[in-house]
Design a protein around this nucleic acid. Sequence first.
DNA 1: ATTCTCACG
DNA 2: ACGTACGTGAGAATT
Length: 899
Amino acid sequence: MAKPTLLLIDGNSLAFRAFYALINQVDRFVNHEGLHTNALVGFNNLLDGIIEPFNPDLALVAWDAGKTTFRTGKFDNYKGNRDNTPQELVEQFEPLRQMVSLHGIKSYELSGYEADDIIGTMARLGEADGYSVTIVTGDRDLTQLVSDDITVWVTKKGISEIDHYTPAMIAELYDGLEPKQIVDIKGLQGDTSDNYPGIAGIGPKTALKLIKKYHSISEMYEQIDDMKASKQKEKLINGKQDALLSRDLAEILTDAPVTISLSDLKYKGPDYENIIPFYQHLDFKAQLVKLANQGYTVPTSGHNEDVEFDLNNTDLAVSAITPASLTHVSQLQGTVSFYLELDDENYHTANPVGFVIGNQENGYFASRDMELLTQNSPVKKILEDQTILKNVFNAKELYVSLKRLDVALQGVNFDLLLVSYLLDTNDNNNDLGALAHDNDYYAVMTDEEVYGKGAKFAIPEADADLFEHLGRKAMAINLLREPLLERLSKHEQTKLYEEIELPLTKILADMESTGITVDSEQLLQMRSKLTERLSELEQKIYQQAGHEFNVQSPKQLGVVLFEEMKYTPIKKTKTGYSTSVEVLEKMGDVPIVASILAYRQVAKIQSTYVEGLLRVIHGSDSKVHTRYLQTLTQTGRLSSVDPNLQNIPVRIEEGRQIRKAFVPSQADWQILSADYSQIELRVLAHITGDKNLQAAFINGEDIHAATARRIFGIKDDEPVEGNIRRQAKAVNFGIVYGISDFGLSKNIGVSRKEAKAIIETYFDQYPDVKKWSDDIIASAREKGYVETIAHRRRYLPDIKAKRFNARSFAERTAMNSPIQGSAADIIKIAMIKVQEAIAKAGLQAHMLLQVHDELIFEAPESEMADLEELVRNVMDSAVTLDVPLLVSSHVGASWYDAK
DNA sequence: ATTCTCACG
DNA sequence: ACGTACGTGAGAATT
């Protein structure tokens, strides 16, 4: 029969390990009361991951009782070089003990002794009593206890990996020595972390050699007279006291006067009843989700911004739609939740695999049969009925996918995804289950849990499984509506949601469905020209390098440039030499570098744009249909994927040619492009209230030239030279990004000192910009977030971080986000008003694209003049700021020509 | 899955 | 002294 097991855990060393493993994120792991939890998280993972599966018969966590022990009595400076334990860790010790207790494990400490000594003593007791003993620690000192019945597990690399020390492993590590001889080694070599000396001049190598020869320190000194005279012998004789003391300090007691016995250590296993409130107190969401999935009831903690709400409802009534139940479905009224599952995230091409409709009062009805959703079904009728309100998750996806099924969705009342994003852009997650968990509702799983991910993704075959998941999603949407809307209102974001984001959803859906026509002939012609250019450049590069290699591999290119050709590396990445444009341009006039830069430019255009776009043109309509992500960015901007139409080349002519392929969808139609000029600087002038900056815009000045005059002291009657204006432009951008002297100096190629002086002058000239910067950072520290003009919020948890880097980044963000985000607010408002105006004017025009400060339209040539006028008027009056908004616009036969 | 590079505002 | 401009997405190489 297997031996009973005893598990001994070194509480202090593991707490330290866990704390420092997550030290980089110490400011991210904070519960709602401000308690740091990084060590708690790591320790809990250890308990769940190791102790629970181990399921020992006996278990104990030993703790240090304080700084003074019998060792400090022997040697004042024992551990004397240790910094004070950080406050962030100290505050976690008490909850750590609670955590241990809730996991059904005894804690023990003994005044005057270290955790090590408790462990040593209990280990020997267990060994003698016939237990198989396992010690878990973060400290290798305990390996001296290893025996046939005592194994020591030492965590390494944080706490994720573990080394298992057995007598055989010790023998291998110490060249055949026994575990108990480790103390003799340490007696000779000392221990810097515990701050005892050993013998000066004896390191690990010599210590090992000596102990191999003499077996122990005492035997060595017995035989020291026989040792032949040497420097080493002198050192040993002089250091005898140190060696004996150090050995004494290194030795772990196995007979400490403990007041517990093995029978006190019975392992009870986790106390699930009481661990749930404990996890809630610590905000351990992941743990709560795990418990909820195991069938434990996890009630809402209700501390979420003090909004109390009841999300305890977990009883789902979901049924498959049958011909008989169709009557029930058709009788649904008031408010329903609707959810449509697709087999892929690209809803322009994905297949619907199931849907669910219903509410708490009447139950939920699910089906895989899309015919029940289309044609003359009652479901279609409900979806198209404006008076029946729909609660959904991701309304834009729904608009587009239902339109593909010939269903025109109306009456969207609540979009869970959109609201969650507005409430907190940080922990927004496109998964409904994860999002529900974030809001303390656990009765729904994540898609990854149900469907798997990557190659393993699969929709469950059993109706019961799929419908249960869909039903729970629909139920979560319904239950979360009220509490989330209440929080939205507390944030003063109701207007932002109802009047900007929700109407915009429909507009974006229409733009995406409409798509933009891409002339594939144009792209194919470009492709053959570029292929030729690429092979010419490639041959030239091979010739210049002296051999063939993969030009597109930064690694191989690094070897060619900086090893074979011996050019001086300017910058390194963490994996090797950097070969970025920035670096290559600094290398000066080198022929191969010029070829490489040209190659890179062409290769980028070819792969990303020509071939990338050709791949995503829909065969059915010769258009590309991007998806705008409305709930992704931290600032409120949109982003565009599959394809990204917000980064089509424009700055370099060769790439700009790509825009010739973007053409109107019908003959005799044209493209209109209208963009805001310097919208971010105008927003800056508005929100800072800086009169000097505002004056420049009000007077219609060239803003970069005006800044140049101020920061370089150029008189009104003198001209502003191009290079000076360029520098001023960089300063203006820098201000918007949250300037630093380093960043500016790098950007405009002046010394850091000069850059610093320029920034100071800027702030002298625009004093209210400076004041606003300081104020917004102070406000972010106080409130924890910053806001745009439309109350879009961005939380900045790092604004109080101790780490300089993280904090500085948060401070720059505090300045940039209100600016970038308010500009995003403005163009979103403009889009809504433009769409209304186009409808009201009865124009055929379509809004096609949004590129942050630019809108692209197509319209018949005949209505283009009206459209241009309308768009300009709406855009420049979208909001009223203290400075005017200026719009420039162009019409042409393609996006390229609308310049 | 991550890193590097580069396209846009 | 720290080590930096803000916000994105995609392709290719590499792990």
